[in-house]
């Protein structure tokens, strides 16, 4: 029995294992090997063992700084917009409308982020919102090709990824807990802080992590809505691999990105845990 069970487990895990090996570990290994190599005369990779590429990483400091500024900011902005929306969908909407509104949240995902970002070019461009603002005397407002535009694009593009985990967490939330809180003397706003918010934290954490990790690798939105002036690590990678064809340096930057991501996600998880622990203290107040 134990034999067959472990064999069954092995069988079940084999596809995922192979997938990870082929799609994650192998490329990662290649990137690691490349990162210690040298750029060949005409670009691309030349075998070697040097730390030169890593020593050169400060040359992309600005890209890391931009990414590490706008990714958390974008995550936070998405969260601040997604939470009320998810709350509304999960708690306030009647079941009849719920499905329709949920579909509306997903619908933008049916078209490519590229197309949608192009729509924002029009909206934020001179003939879009700025023209509208000009009618109210706010002349010459520049929105497109600014970090703000990138933030707008990010929030827009990633909102559903944030909404759904939070929605699921809020949907699961037993409404009787709120009645219990009210019954025990808690006004609604305090019940939100003491019951709803803490219990939806898993959704908030999942959504934030999802958005943050994807944002760290983002390059399309900054290049489209940032007018090429907002430079993420993702843009640095595209340039290094496809334009200057400096694969070893590109690989080192990629490894750097993975490390930065591991560190920030690690810090985030720890902070989240601490918040989780603090939550009970808050509840004791």
């Amino acid at each position: 029995m134990a034999m067959t069970r472990s064999r069954a487990r092995a069988l079940l895990l084999t596809p995922a294992g192979l997938w990870y090996a082929a799609m994650l570990l192998l490329p990662l290994a290649v990137v690691l090997i490349f990162s210690f190599g040298e750029r060949s005369q005409i670009g691309g990779y030349a075998p070697g063992f040097t730390l030169e590429q890593y020593a050169n990483l400060p040359a992309r400091f600005a890209a890391f700084r931009n990414t590490l500024t706008l990714a958390p900011l974008g995550t936070l902005a998405s969260l601040l917009i997604a939470y009320p929306l998810a709350y509304y969908l999960a708690v306030k909407v009647t079941p009849k409308w719920k499905t329709m509104l949920l579909v509306l949240v997903i619908v933008p995902f049916w078209t490519s982020i590229l197309i949608r970002s192009y729509a924002w070019i029009f909206l934020l461009g001179g003939k879009g919102i700025p023209a509208f603002l000009a009618m109210f005397g706010l002349e010459d407002v520049r929105l497109l090709n600014t970090p703000f535009a990138v933030l707008v694009g990010i929030v827009y593009g990633y909102l559903p990824l944030m909404v759904f985990p939070i929605y699921v967490a809020l949907e699961k939330l037993d409404k009787r807990l709120l009645e219990a809180a009210a019954d025990l003397g808690t006004p609604p706003w305090r019940a939100f802080l003491q019951i709803t918010l803490p219990l939806s934290m898993p959704g908030v954490l999942t959504g934030s992590m999802l958005v943050f990790i994807l944002l760290m690798g983002e390059f399309l939105i900054p290049s489209i809505l940032g007018g090429g002036k907002v430079f993420f690590v993702g843009n640095a990678l595209v340039d290094l691999f496809l334009q200057s064809r400096n694969w070893p340096f590109g690989s080192a930057v990629a490894v750097g990105l993975v490390l930065v991501m591991l560190v920030t996600v690690g810090l985030y998880t720890r902070a989240a845990k601490r918040f989780g622990a603090g939550r009970d203290d808050a509840a004791l107040m």
Binding site: D174, A181, L184, G185, T186, A283, L284
Partner: peptide, 26 residues
């Protein structure tokens, strides 16, 4: 007035004593 709910509606993110003390803390 206070209620004992059908499925108790205890706060899952709090300990037993935090649950019991909840009303007093309000």
């Amino acid at each position: 007035v206070n209620m004992v709910f059908q499925h108790y509606a205890l706060f899952p993110h709090m300990t037993v004593e935090e649950n019991v003390g909840y009303g007093l803390r309000q």
